[in-house]
Amino acid sequence: MPKMKTVKSASKRFKLGKNKIKRGSAFRSHILTKKSPQRKRNLRSSQYVDSTNEASVRKMLCK
């Protein structure tokens, strides 16, 4: 049986934490002039993958 391969795009987007899977925030790449500094600052912090999607992300990461 062949080895399970990691989905490379997923490995670049997600990091495994101790209990949760970390992900970056959306809406942070362009058109930043109209967004307030407070909103941009809050988007800087990492988010966590929702529990409904956690199983599929773990499968993509082969964990």
Rank of each mutant, 00 (worst) to 15 (best):
G24A: 12
C62N: 11
R23T: 13
I31N: 04
M4I: 06
S36E: 05
S9K: 08
R23I: 14
A26D: 03
D50W: 11
T33R: 09
V57F: 15
S45F: 00
L16Q: 05
N42S: 13
L43W: 00
V57R: 14
A55R: 14
K12I: 04
G24H: 01
I31T: 01
C62Y: 15
N19S: 07
M1T: 04
R44G: 14
K18P: 07
R23W: 00
I31H: 02
K20F: 09
I21N: 07
C62W: 14
A10D: 02
K59F: 12
A10E: 03
R58Y: 12
A10K: 05
V7L: 04
K15P: 12
A26H: 00
N53Y: 15
N19Q: 10
K35R: 06
E54M: 15
R28M: 06
T33A: 09
R58Q: 15
K59A: 06
R23S: 08
S46T: 12
S36T: 12
H30L: 11
P2F: 02
S11L: 09
G17P: 03
A55M: 14
R44C: 10
S51F: 15
A55T: 11
T33N: 05
I31G: 01
S9C: 04
C62V: 12
S36I: 06
M60A: 07
S45M: 06
R44H: 02
L32W: 00
S46K: 11
Q47K: 13
K34N: 09
K20Y: 13
S11T: 03
M60K: 13
T33S: 10
V49G: 11
L43S: 11
S9A: 07
F27L: 09
G24K: 03
Q47R: 11
F14Q: 01
K20R: 15
S51Q: 14
S46P: 04
K3Q: 05
S9D: 05
S11R: 08
Q47M: 10
M1C: 02
R28Q: 08
